[in-house]
Design a protein around this nucleic acid. Sequence first.
RNA 1: GCCCCGGUAGCUCAGUUGGAUAGAGCAGCCGCCUCCUAAGCGGCAGGUCGGACGUUCGAAUCGUCUCCGGGGCACCA
Length: 587
Amino acid sequence: MKTHLTELLKQAIDALINDGTLTNVGTVEIMLERTKQREHGDFACNLALTLTKIAKCKPRDLAQKIVNALPASDLVDKVEIAGPGFINFFMATSTLHNTVQQVLKLQQQYGQGNHGSGKTVHIEFVSANPTGPLHVGHGRGAAYGATLANLLEQTGYKVHREYYVNDAGRQMDILAVSVWLRYLELCGEKLVFPSNGYQGAYVYDIAATLHRENGDHFRADAAEVFLEISADAGQENGDKEAHIDGLIYNAKKILSDKDYRTVHDAGLETILQDINKDLSQFGVRYDTWFSERSLIESDKINKAIDQLQKNGYLYKENGALWFKSSTFGDEKDRVVIRENSQATYFASDIAYHLDKLDRGYDQIIDIWGADHHGYVPRIKAVIEAMGQPSDKLAVLLVQFAILYRGGEKVQMSTRSGEFVTLRELRQEVGNDAARFFYIMRKSEQHMDFDLDLAKSQSNDNPVYYIQYAHARICRVFEQLKQKGWSYDASQPSIPLDRLTNDHELDLMNRLSRFPEVIESAAINFEPHMLAQYLRDLANDFHTYYNAHTFLVEDDNLRNARLSLILATRVVIANGLRYLGVSAPEEM
RNA sequence: GCCCCGGUAGCUCAGUUGGAUAGAGCAGCCGCCUCCUAAGCGGCAGGUCGGACGUUCGAAUCGUCUCCGGGGCACCA
């Protein structure tokens, strides 16, 4: 529809250029927008206003000239000039009937577009360290990433969903030691658990499994484990970081490489499986789980560093190897290899992003928590240093969600292990409400997550409001059967021109916007627009439902109305599916 | 100190990338079930778009300054 009008306008402009009315206009970008008010028609164009300077002509006069040059079209009912010089298009009602037919014909495919034209997108999201269960902060990134991926797919992109697993590095070592120490306790060793270890109950479970399957095989003397280790926090001259590092060092010394790896991987694999299960129950699935350790084992970190070296962006200083990220706008250069010859976490990220580039995607999307925003310039710098345009990578930041229960903020702190897990949230409010609430707000917006509202089965709750519209439509078709009538959507003889009242026009109009909303939400990375749209659509439907009876005696009118609400049902179901929310047939 | 995000109705938030009279939902007030689910619908009221200046036909939207809230500024991960 939009493209059709754009084409008409383009022809009109060309005609005006040819007859000399317009000169020196260069390339004209035609912008069309949906109107807010019915008196302004369906689409409005501000072309005459933007061209007024170049044309040296009053906007309204110019608008008139454009309108005069406009080719005729069956789809356009009338064109008006309004306000300062807007050109308003009133579409023929037949275009709305067309929409209903399109929806019923395309079904699940209605809403799909081809903006992406097969371009490939890599989208990485959540990627939480596998050191414990996901918490509610990860949930927002999960819902956002999964929904965005769905939307991009509908818009014609080939999407690859990936979880980056930080299965190497110090945090994992801390987990391994935590598991081992709990295991030693089970063997009967007496020890004081380090304050910086992972305190959560899940660590006991992993240790217990390890003990059940291996007996005392990994047992060591507690005194030996804590030999020559600096004091923990809380003690005199205590330092929790040095304390835990000493424990890691001793663990690696006491256990063979193979045994250490077994303990390490017991923790890793158990938690990763748990995360995987949690996410998949949340309706979030991945194409690949990319291991950081695989980067090390395949020597890709060194290769990536060599690449930067070759491109001339590395230098040595104070014994460390630095990346010149400041030449690409970062506020300072960053260390890649530390003085102690260990690679930094950043080195892994360089290798990981080079790997993404090498895999040849047209677009790379990283979704991070907003607390990592300071990290963006250096990763963008990596992309540029590898010779690619920095906008090939889009880093999308998701702000935290603050939970409220009974009007009170729910306090959380990671340190004490007192955080609400995603699983607990899902159990409390349900998957549907959780998915919807997470993406209801713009992702960069700080969000208040009202647990009581998400749980409430009332008209206050937007999820139920939308689902209820879907269920109501399903019930109408049940009623239809009970009344002994039937309806066949494939009947070509259904006279949609019987749909004439304002509620019907509004609803059809709303349905016709769906593909635009999907595309816009996808390419702007703003899935909340879809949530907003579905609420509006549900509202249009509920209003219609209250104002008119669908199951009327008049066969033609009844069938026309049933076609319309069936189309509405399809669109609601499609929208909810992209959001990962179910569309119940009854409630 | 520097950087990022936000500030819109009492509350939670939209605002189609600079357009026409700034919109929803809650909360408040008034109405609507003999009728396809009232988990619904209609109406009323509610605003100095944090503030100031600027850019132009036109600003909640863009720029500069400023105030308030949140976050970030490692040879940590």
